[in-house]
């Protein structure tokens, strides 16, 4: 069902296209970004959220977007006193949406990396997730170096994919479109291990009787950031203030506890 080679090519193609576009963006002065005063004057902020990354953004019972990122988006709208225009985005198009001024902010469980920061600016982190490799107790793996013949299912292009590929370049990694298909591959026995977020592994265990998804090793504790267009220090500064303030009130920690099951740690880093 999953022709890995074909899918890789498709992915490479998307990456190359995106790369070419960004190169073009660097040469041509991009469209002027809406600054903070314009957002306030317009009474509307355009925020991109995922709908395929539970528990950050997914669809609820009546198929409306819900999740941690959606809650943060609404909190931002409330704090700015403006209406929130939610736009569903995917992992592949979230940065192009920002670069071409179709969105003011992207809240999409996005980890800050130096590469991404060349194109978009990141706020201080509003939450965090632990990503790792999970599987049954019968598989004796305690570190990336222990990986041998086991097939590991992972959602392509995610932070866990990048980290696992870097930590265990020789491991048998099979990449899928999203967490759900990767999980299906694990549950159906097509993969021996699953690389995902701790909260997803925990939910899968609760939902499927007899499935063992215990942490083999944690790859990284990954803070998540709001992405904004570059060249807009006022919006970035406002977001940092927003995060700082709601860290102090404990609201962001409560949100993380609501969706991810654990509050944020005491010494949570900032950017």
């Amino acid at each position: 069902m999953y022709n890995n080679k074909g899918r890789r090519t498709m992915f490479d193609l998307k990456t190359k296209l995106a790369g070419a576009l960004f190169a073009a963006a660097a040469m041509i002065a991009g469209p002027a970004a809406a600054d903070l005063q314009e957002i306030l004057a317009a009474g509307k902020v355009r925020i991109g959220v995922p709908v395929d990354v539970p528990p950050f953004g997914f669809v609820g019972k009546s198929n409306e977007p819900v999740g941690l990122d959606v809650d943060v988006a609404n909190m931002i709208g409330k704090a700015l006193g403006v209406e929130v225009e939610l736009q569903q985005i995917t992992g592949a198009n979230r940065i192009p949406y920002l670069v071409t001024d179709r969105l003011d902010m992207v809240i999409s469980a996005m980890g800050a990396t130096p590469e991404r920061a060349q194109l978009v600016a990141f706020s201080s982190p509003y939450s965090a997730l632990a990503i790792g490799v999970f599987g049954p107790d019968s598989i004796a793996v305690g570190a990336p170096g222990d990986l041998g013949d086991q097939t590991i299912a992972v959602a392509r292009g995610t932070t866990q994919d990048l980290e696992l590929t870097a930590a265990a370049p020789d491991a048998k990694i099979t990449r899928f479109d999203d967490d759900a298909t990767a999980a299906a591959a694990f549950l159906s026995g097509q993969a021996d291990l699953l690389a995902t977020a701790n909260v997803v592994a925990r939910d899968l265990m609760q939902k499927n009787d007899g499935v063992e998804l215990n942490a083999k090793f944690i790859l990284r504790y990954a803070p998540t950031h709001v992405g904004v267009q570059q060249g807009n220090p006022e919006i970035l500064r406002w977001l940092d203030t927003f995060v700082f303030y709601h860290m102090l009130t404990g609201e962001l920690s409560d949100l993380t506890e609501k969706w991810l099951g654990q509050p944020l740690p005491e010494n949570f880093p900032s950017l």
Binding site: V51, F58, V59, A180, T181
Partner: peptide, 24 residues
């Protein structure tokens, strides 16, 4: 067209899959 924001049949399937973890 899902890539530029249209929620047509395939994209809708991805979204439902992500919420239900029932791709099959």
């Amino acid at each position: 067209t899902a890539l530029i924001g249209f929620v047509e049949l395939t994209r809708a399937s991805q979204i439902i899959t992500a919420a239900t973890f029932a791709p099959l």
